[in-house]
Amino acid sequence: DCSRLFDNDLPDGWEERRTASGRIQYLNHITRTTQWERPTRPASEYSSP
């Protein structure tokens, strides 16, 4: 389970979450994917897998 964190500095379409182990990951709501690196572009600029 991940708990949500609120971060207004993220590009549109992204959400920051913390894993059960405390690591931060980023959820792309457009492609429904996650990544460990902080995003720098809006989620819509990433392609679906």
Rank of each mutant, 00 (worst) to 15 (best):
S44L: 11
S21E: 15
Y46S: 15
T34E: 07
T33I: 10
W36H: 14
R38P: 03
R4L: 12
Y26C: 01
F6P: 14
E37S: 04
F6K: 14
H29W: 05
S3Q: 14
S21M: 09
E15G: 04
F6H: 15
R41K: 15
P42Y: 08
R17C: 10
E37G: 03
E16N: 02
R38A: 04
D1R: 00
R32K: 15
T33R: 11
A43V: 08
P11W: 01
E16Y: 01
R38Y: 05
Q25N: 04
R18A: 11
P39I: 00
S44R: 13
R23I: 07
G22W: 00
A20L: 05
S47C: 09
D12T: 12
C2V: 07
C2D: 06
R17V: 12
L27D: 03
L27T: 12
A43M: 05
S47I: 06
Y26E: 02
P11A: 06
C2I: 11
A43C: 05
Q35V: 10
E15A: 10
R17Q: 14
P11I: 00
D9N: 14
I30F: 07
F6D: 14
D7A: 11
D12Y: 12
H29K: 14
G22A: 03
L5T: 13
G13R: 01
R17M: 13
P42F: 08
Y26A: 01
Q35I: 04
L5A: 14
D9I: 15
R38H: 04
R23E: 15
S48A: 12
D9L: 10
C2T: 13
I24Q: 07
S21R: 09
S47K: 12
T33G: 14
E15V: 10
S3G: 12
E45C: 05
S48I: 10
I30N: 09
A20P: 10
E16L: 09
P49V: 15
E16S: 10
R41S: 15
I24S: 08
R18G: 07
S3N: 13
S47A: 10
T19N: 08
R38N: 03
S47W: 05
T40K: 13
Y46M: 07
W14F: 04
L10G: 01
S47H: 04
Q25Y: 09
G22E: 05
N28T: 00
P39D: 02
T31W: 04
T33N: 13
Q35D: 04
L27C: 08
T31H: 09
S21A: 15
E15N: 04
E15H: 07
N8C: 11
S3H: 11
R32W: 07
L10I: 04
H29C: 11
D9G: 10
T33S: 15
S48F: 07
E37F: 01
P11E: 04
E16G: 12
E16K: 14
R32H: 15
C2E: 05
Q25F: 09
D7Y: 07
D12H: 13
G22P: 01
D1V: 02
P11C: 05
Q25K: 02
T34H: 09
E16F: 05
D12G: 09
E45K: 06
Y26I: 00
N28L: 00
E45D: 10
A20K: 10
S47R: 09
E45W: 05
Q25T: 04
S3L: 10
I30V: 11
Q35E: 06
W36P: 05
L10K: 02
N28H: 06
E37W: 05
D1L: 01
E37N: 01
W14R: 01
D7E: 10
S3P: 12
A43Q: 05
T33M: 12
F6R: 14
S47Y: 15
T34D: 01
R17P: 00
P11Y: 05
L5V: 07
T31D: 12
N8Q: 09
R17E: 08
P39W: 01
S47L: 09
N28D: 05
L27Q: 02
Y46I: 10
Y26V: 02
R32A: 14
Q35H: 07
Y26S: 01
T31S: 12
Y46P: 10
T34F: 14
D7R: 05
I24F: 03
S48C: 11
N28Q: 01
R4T: 15
L5F: 06
S44T: 09
N8Y: 02
D9F: 04
T33K: 15
Q35N: 00
R32F: 08
W36N: 05
D1E: 02
Y46V: 11
I30A: 07
P11F: 00
R18I: 15
T40R: 13
C2L: 05
S47M: 10
D7T: 13
Y26R: 00
D12E: 10
R38K: 03
P11R: 03
H29L: 13
E15I: 04
D1Y: 02
Y46L: 10
I24E: 03
E45V: 05
R17H: 11
S47V: 09
R17W: 04
P49R: 13
S44K: 14
D1S: 00
S44Y: 09
T31Q: 05
S48E: 10
A20I: 04
C2W: 03
S44Q: 06
E37A: 01
S47F: 10
R32Y: 11
S48D: 13
N8F: 04
T33Q: 15
T31K: 07
L10P: 00
N28G: 01
R4I: 15
G22D: 08
Y26W: 04
P42M: 05
Q35M: 11
R4Y: 15
R23Y: 02
S48M: 12
R4E: 15
S3F: 09
D9Q: 07
R23G: 11
D7V: 10
E45R: 04
E45P: 03
I30Q: 08
W14G: 03
L5G: 10
L5W: 01
G22R: 02
T31Y: 11
P11K: 03
T40S: 13
W14C: 00
R17Y: 13
T31C: 12
L10M: 06
S48K: 02
R18L: 10
Q25V: 08
N28V: 00
W14P: 08
R4F: 15
T34Y: 06
E45M: 07
P49H: 05
T34K: 03
D12L: 11
N28I: 00
S47G: 09
L27H: 06
D7N: 11
A43T: 09
P39K: 00
E45Q: 05
Y26H: 01
L27R: 07
R4D: 15
P49A: 12
T40F: 04
S21C: 08
H29I: 11
L27Y: 12
S3K: 13
H29Y: 06
W36F: 07
T31V: 03
A20Q: 11
N8V: 07
T40I: 14
E37I: 02
E16C: 08
S3D: 14
N8W: 06
N28C: 06
D12S: 13
P42K: 12
L5Y: 07
P42A: 03
